[in-house]
Each structure stands twice: as structure tokens, then as C-alpha cells.
Nucleic acid binder design. Sequence first.
DNA 1: GAACCCTCCTTAATCAATTAAGAGCTTAAT
DNA 2: ATTAAGCTCTTAATTGATTAAGGAGGGTTC
Lengths: 349, 349
Amino acid sequence: MAKVTLQTIADRLGVSRATVSYAFSRPDQLSDGLRQRILEVADELGYAGPNPTARSLRLGRAGALGLLFSETLAYAFADPYAIGFFQGLATAAEDAGVGLLILPLPHGDQRSDTVRDAVVDAFCVMSLPDGHPALAEVLARKLPVVVVDEPYVPGHPFLGIDEPAAGAAAARHVLELGHRRLGVAMVGLHEDGHTGWADQERQRGAAFEAMRARRGGYQTACEQAGLDWSSVPFYEVARNSREAGRRAGHALLGREPRPTAILTNTDVLALGILDAAADLGLEVPGQLSVVGFSDSAAEEAGLTTIRQAKREIGETAGRLLLSGGAATPERRLFPYELIVRSSTAPPPR
Amino acid sequence: MAKVTLQTIADRLGVSRATVSYAFSRPDQLSDGLRQRILEVADELGYAGPNPTARSLRLGRAGALGLLFSETLAYAFADPYAIGFFQGLATAAEDAGVGLLILPLPHGDQRSDTVRDAVVDAFCVMSLPDGHPALAEVLARKLPVVVVDEPYVPGHPFLGIDEPAAGAAAARHVLELGHRRLGVAMVGLHEDGHTGWADQERQRGAAFEAMRARRGGYQTACEQAGLDWSSVPFYEVARNSREAGRRAGHALLGREPRPTAILTNTDVLALGILDAAADLGLEVPGQLSVVGFSDSAAEEAGLTTIRQAKREIGETAGRLLLSGGAATPERRLFPYELIVRSSTAPPPR
DNA sequence: GAACCCTCCTTAATCAATTAAGAGCTTAAT
DNA sequence: ATTAAGCTCTTAATTGATTAAGGAGGGTTC
């Protein structure tokens, strides 16, 4: 059973290949009778319809949007912030009738050609660490690209929030409540899988631009409030999981003097901090204030957090790419908002 | 700035197109000197690398797995059960170095050609209602296909659980605890967006095979326990959200006599039932038992549920498709397990 | 009956690659 | 000197479609 192509059908009927093509894609160019016969024979031969790859080649469009994300896909799907973004992107793709091609990054060291071989019309890159090889591969494709969150690539549209300002807003919130003994738990600074205390150098050398900037915001706000940043305990975790947050929480809350407020860069981590507080019998917000980030898993737990327009960012990214390419290489910052719930209060006296 | 292809580079250097192709894909076929020059010129001309579509056509592989899901993408990404499945599928795709092309279904009535035009090597279809046109489009492509959960398509591999048995296990659990007044809340029976009481006919006529079967399991268990199924209040909701679950909960708990146990077909719905119980000041499990399904969002809430191997199903689906097509058109049922937590107990006396 | 216009179909170029087979040329072995 | 073997590179077929331009045949119009 050889492959059935337009030509197979054409030969069988003694018509030209073009005629058969018209039968499928431009019915008005053919008499109804012939068209019917062609479709019948196609069916009979088990023709699967015009080969999408050949069609794509001829028409010059792929009908898909490529999406790159720093983490493994399994992990990306577990991250509420990423999910929100995906939803927005998916909405845009859906409206345009194109698919969303989720590309795995080569894990570890072995290289793969997924980016080079991806049949897409444009790329959306989200949250890649500085200098990640996949970014270069994407740029080499010379297709429209938008970057979300990080890293900023001059000359290409960028979507995200004002990270330093948002970080500062989170920190200022607890500072203004009167807290002076802060602690910080962050995930996604480096790719080396390290979990533990992070010194200044390690903080400043974070591979992820947005997280680096967010942390910078914490620091700025602290210093403006007259706090010595170097005295703020900073715990870094490798995975954005509730369990990792709990570990960070135990580490931070085991310090002497104990922090009265903990800043985290994801809601998931913040939930883990709450777990740790519960383990220790600490009341939140009475004895401990906790601030999350992204408003992705915060509502039910009553978490104070920074809301990011993740769906809107995703949808905008999609529309930008699908509307004839990324025309405007601008750096577009979306609004963020401090949402104060019941996990923050003035410090205990 | 015309398009740069292999030919452009070949012409510029006075070599043949084949030579340039070798420079990119088979370095051993060329002298290093020439190869260097070719790569230089390619760079100079802004060549984006071998066109993936043309490559794909010539090589006969797309390097992507197509995924169809009944809901809008935005919704799919919000469903913990689907997410679990995606993670498994993504893992398999990642290991094989292929992308995951998520295809939007035509929403409403307007048709789209995404399935016909999808550049993929195989399809994974998940949870489509009976007779959904997209399924026919997928089958028309004559590519390897596996179906997950529903609908079963004879001749193609099927992955899922033994729904009637799993449903019966959930029901039997509360029946064996001594409950006699049950209530049921289900989502995803029909596509008409209806929320409200569902009579027998509507229950049996559900468009989603798996949910129909699961409900059949409830009924069987009830009847085996000597319960009159027609007296069991059955509330159907259109969306799998906690809020919808709460609405269903209020409807069910407002009945006289009030049910002492409520079965739901998703954990998310069950969480909503818990909300409703809390609204009414009912103690769980003291005054009300609640059973979820899928073990996708149940642990923290202490929900009794049926665990499904969602990630494993996803990964198996992926491997099946990526290992030279779906060789075995078998109906493969994965284990499920009743996980008893703290949301079920004997009924109040 | 010439001019013109449809309708329906064919011709042939095009999309951008891959790769088996073969042609020159140099070098080594017999 | 002859044959063989190695390197490089080219030729040309192939992948499966789309579509502008053109031709054949029939019908209308004046």
C-alpha cells in the first residue's frame, strides 16, 4: 500500500494533479461532477487529504506558534503562573486558528534540534536564563519573536512587568507595616539546583533577569527604609514547590532573631512558608507576615501577593505574534498590583 | 531582501546546492575549508538554516505530536487532571525530542482546518464527546492515534481506566460506610452548558462516554446495595470549577431529606461541595461525606477520592505514539485506587 | 461568421530542502 | 605503470503540494 498523493488520484482518473488539488482547496474551479468523482476516488484510495507539510511549504505558513519555556514541560505545567500565561497565549492561538507548539528544551547537556526543526511561524520565549543556548537558536531562525519576563533582547518585543518596582512594592508593604526583621525565600535564581542560603554575590549573579530584578526591588525598598540588606537572610530553593517553600520556611524561621515577615517570589513558595509557620505553631499574620508573588495560588489561602496580568500578557504575546509578526520591538510593561489579604499585618510587639 | 535559501548561498559561492546542504547536515561529506566558507557566507547573507518545512517534507517526519482536547485550551490548562496528563505526555515528548502541538478545536460552529493542516506525526486525542467532528478529522489523517479516556474508537489504542468499576468503587465506599441518602454532582456530561438537575434520560444520554460509564458505576453500586437510583438527586454543572461545585452543593444540600454523602466526578467539584457544606455549617465528615475523583486536587483538603494514574497514562500515550506508531490497537486500562482521607465517614445517626 | 466570453481543465513553475549515484582528481599500493 | 581506493563535489531525482497563465470547447451576440 504505497503512499497516496494527489498524483495517485490524478493518474487513476486520468486528470492532472492540479485538478485534484482544486477539488480539495478550490471547489469553484471545477465542475461538480468531476469534483465528486475525485473525492470518491480519493476516499476509495484512502487519501488522507493534502499533505500538510507540502502545503505548508508551498504556502509559506506553518499554522503554529512555537513556545519555549526554561523548565521541563512537566514542570511548566505544574507552575500556576506559567499556566495562567499559557491560557492567555492559548486563547490568542485559538482565536487565530493556529496550534501551539510546545518545544522541549534539551535537558542536561545533550543537544537537540527541536528549535531548529520546529515548523512554526513565530516564537514566544518565556523565562529563559541569561545566555541560554536555546535563545540563540530561536534568534537564528529569523522569525518573529517575543520574549516574556526574561531575558530582554534588544530589538525584539518584550512583555513583562516592572520587576524592580513590583519587588519594591512587596517589600515596602511589610516595611510600612513596621516590620524590620525580614527574610526572603526565592526560587528560580540559578539553574544549578542549589538549595540553601545565598550570599550577596550569588543573589546578584542570578541567571534569571526578572528574578534578579525583583530581588533588586526588595533590596532597594529595604535600603530606602534604612535596613541593612546584608543582614536580611536570603534562602534560595531549586524547585518551585510547596515542599521547598516549607523547607525554606523552616530555615528562615529557625534564625535568631526570627524574621517577622518573609518575602517570596512565588505564591507556591509562600504557601510552603505558611506550612512551616503552622509546623512551628506560629500564627499568621499575628506572629509572621508572608508575601507571595503572581497571585496564582494565593486567593484561597488569603495570601498577600503581587498580582500580575499573566493571562493578559499571554494573550498579548500571542496577538502580537499572530498579527503579521512582532512589528513593534518595544519593551512593554504590564500593570502589577499589590493585593493585601490576610497573611500580612504589623509585626508583633 | 529576498529570502535566503541553500541556493542563494550556492550561487554566491559557485558551488552546488547539495554541497551547501551537506555543509549543514553532513559535515563529513565536505572539506573543512569549503564548509567554513559556506557557513561564513550563510551567516553573512543572514541564512536562517535549512527550512524546517522543506526538511520535514523531504524527510517525511514532522517532529511533533498533535494533541486534541475537548475543551478550549484556556480551560484545559485549568483542569488539574488534564494538567497531570499533559505532564506525562510532555515527558514522553521531551524524551523523544519532539514538540507537542496543542490544537485548538473550532469553538462554536465555525470550522477551522487546524486538524487537517497540523504538521504532526501522530495524534493524541483526549476526552472528546461522542461524535465530535474533530475525531473524524483526526482519523481522516490516517496517522497513528491514541485515544485517552473517551471516546473508544475500535481499531485504535485506547488508554483509560475501568470507569464503571471506578465509579462503583467510589459509591460502594460510602454505601459500605452505611450511607443511604446519596447525592451526585457531575460535570462534563453534555456540551450544552446546562447546569441543574439531570433526570435519568439526561444522565444516560451523556455525550461523554467516560463520564457516562462512571455514572453507570455509581448506579450499579447503588442498586446492588438495594438503593433506588431514581431517588438519588443528581445535579449537573457545566464547568469544572470550585464555584460550580459550591452551587451544586447548595442545590443538593438543600434537598429534604438532606443527603449524607455526595459523590462527584472531579476533585475540583468536590472542593466546591466542601465550600457549600462550610457555608451551611455542616461538618465534614461528621454530617456529610464527600468523594472526589482523580486525586488531582484532593490531598491538601483531605478529600477521599479515586486516584487515576494520569501522568502514567499521558506518558504511555506519548511513548506509544512515538515508538513507531500505535502498534497495538488494544484497550488498555490503568489501575485506579480508592484513596480514603478525611472527607468520608459513617453517616450521622 | 467573426468576435467574444465562459467554463473547465492542463501545463509548468515553484516552494526549499535531502541524498544516492557518479565524476574528477589525488594518492597509495602492487 | 596500473589498479584501487579516497576525497570532494555535482548531478538529478525526489518529497507533495499550489496556482498563475493558457488552451480547448461550447455558447452568445451582433
